[in-house]
Design a protein around this nucleic acid. Structure first.
Lengths: 139, 139
DNA sequence: ATTTATAATTGACTTTATCAACTAAATTAT
DNA sequence: ATAATTTAGTTGATAAAGTCAATTATAAAT
């Protein structure tokens, strides 16, 4: 199996499992919602533009996605004091609760993903994947 | 960095690089085209239904994708002798030529991806990812 | 002070994905 | 054997996702 199939295969199968779990729990969100929630929770002063950079998506798409998530009550935005063009995005209470449910589902998926792997394997995987990411990010 | 970010990060950055390379070479195809070409080249008697299974996509989408690729002259289909409902898909000459160009671009991307990695690292990565794939495919 | 750049939003549009209905062939059950 | 059920593939109608260009408001640079 080539590297390409390996990388896309992993992403595809992980995505499929999350999708199934999210649908089964009727959480009413899609893959981009999930990725945004994670990023906003981890970035200290996340803006729409940060999402554009990190997700590699069009800014129009992100603007609509953020709008949608605000309407759904998962996010709140507030003007940045340092730059009035920027809107700082944070999770609302329900957004945080939602992320926690998702994280729980992901934890279960990762547990089955890692079944039978040694902690050395897991560490190696992350280390090697990190090297690959750095290589491509650089070029 | 969590496992989720690692997996999706790798797929995202790889996809971005291929997209850029394919666009730069004006090959006129998208990600699904690429994946289909690879699968059809590797499966001995590939049908639309096999693509549905392997790609995890809706059969309507695959039907239209295959139609498109046939119209573009990259694929040919022929009725299966053993099951007249099935259409066996194979690469045409130009489909094969296209795949070879893509493979060359992927080879270059993978070369930069693997820069500085030992062959042991590469082997470990594939082995561990393979275990993960098996785990999720089973559950 | 004026030009240039950046963050975000919106309109118009294309592409991609999904659901349901349908045809034809194969399989299973009666 | 024939009737009922599955399966492979196609199509129509939509919905969702992604893209491009233009616009507004603010910030930074000249």
């Amino acid at each position: 199996m080539g590297l390409r199939e390996t990388i896309f295969g992993l992403a595809q199968i992980y995505r499929g499992h999350i999708k199934t779990a999210v649908n089964a729990n009727e959480l009413g969100l899609n893959g981009m919602h999930v990725r945004c929630l994670h990023i906003i929770a981890n970035q200290s002063h996340c803006t729409a533009n940060a999402l554009v950079q990190l997700l590699g998506k069009d800014k129009a798409q992100i603007a609509r996605l953020v709008k949608d998530m605000i309407e759904k009550g998962w996010l709140v935005k507030q003007a940045s004091p340092s730059d009035k063009r920027s809107q700082i995005l944070t999770l609302s209470g329900s957004g945080l609760a939602l992320l926690q449910k998702i994280s729980q589902l992901e934890k279960e998926i990762e547990a089955s993903l890692l079944a039978g792997l040694s902690s050395q394997d897991v560490a190696d995987f992350k280390r090697i994947a990190g090297l690959m990411l750095n290589n491509l990010a650089a070029s």
